[in-house]
Design a protein around this nucleic acid. Structure first.
Lengths: 161, 161
DNA sequence: CGTTTTAGTTTGCCGAGGCTTATTTTTTTA
DNA sequence: TAAAAAAATAAGCCTCGGCAAACTAAAACG
């Protein structure tokens, strides 16, 4: 269980997918993860081995996959970022789904805890009219109304809840 | 010059570094790029070959490196994102350097054009008191004053101008 | 309860993108 | 201008994270 290691984006994606599946069904099978991430089972297998070695996952051959406390904590962190970013994109920046989730999906790995906290604060601040002091959204919407030319964005393999 | 291709983050980083160096000195040498990105010259070489093949770079053996129009355009786009993100982090989210630049550096590759446009709009909107209608920054600062526990963030290989 | 179908695993391949260690080529300088 | 230093390149190695194909175990079903 080598602890001195940063998870890669890919590994975070696996934890996220396992967390989401396990939340719904108690535990995940390799196939579930493969399907939800649109990768081959062999890829899941290798990722699972590695994450098991590093103490994020409980897994024995041919058995179900579940997260350890450590894995659950990490997965929660990533999912919280995803959720907060999605909210920011959708409610503050007025970006529609699925763009909002896709953007969150790509950024959740790249953003630091600090920056994430600040963005959450900003969201709450702006969405709470008692804090912000006036309804800024209509003004902001008018301000960026002509940028509705939302291009297609890359599909992303985030588990589409 | 295969055109059907998305640049990787790494490739965008190379274009960015070359752009920045070339802006200062007219053209870049392999060594300049290696130094600014903190990678081995051999790595630069391979990246340069690939970017040359794809029409982003002008380069002949043992010669200087410069960007094609296509490369310059792409580099500008990435740098514009970097700049706009840095401004957002620093002036809107009140995140100090070097955190602001580092965060921008990691996110500039992950963010879509649309999302970037919206963030720029939001920055301008909030920083322009005539648009926002009041000075929100002091209120926001008070709101998030106790999150000054900025952790160390990953170093990033963005060219530190 | 044996056979088939499905799921999990292993192995070996690939490309990207780092690295180091030669080996040029170019540049500097004595 | 020849020798030394610096820069560029080539070759080969490594890890990561995909893949497909082959094999094994488990589950479902007739």
């Amino acid at each position: 269980m080598a602890n001195i290691k940063q998870l890669s984006e890919s590994q975070e994606d696996y934890l996220e997918a396992i967390f989401t599946i396990a939340s719904k069904k108690g535990a995940a099978r390799v196939k579930d993860v493969a399907d939800s991430m649109k990768v081959a089972s062999a890829s899941v297998n290798r990722a699972v081995s590695s994450l098991t070695e590093h103490g994020y996952i409980n897994h024995e051959r041919y058995d179900l996959i579940s997260l350890t406390d450590k894995g659950r904590e990490k997965a929660s962190q990533v999912i919280d970022k995803h959720t907060a970013l999605t909210q920011f994109f959708r409610e503050v920046l007025c970006i529609d789904e699925p763009e909002a989730s896709d953007a969150a999906c790509r950024m959740e790995h790249a953003i630091s805890d600090t920056t994430m906290d600040r963005i959450s604060f900003l969201s709450r601040f702006l969405l709470d009219s008692t804090k912000c002091g006036h309804n800024w959204t209509s003004a902001f919407k008018a301000f960026c109304i002509d940028t509705q030319d939302l291009q297609g964005e890359d599909a992303c393999r985030c588990t589409k809840a």
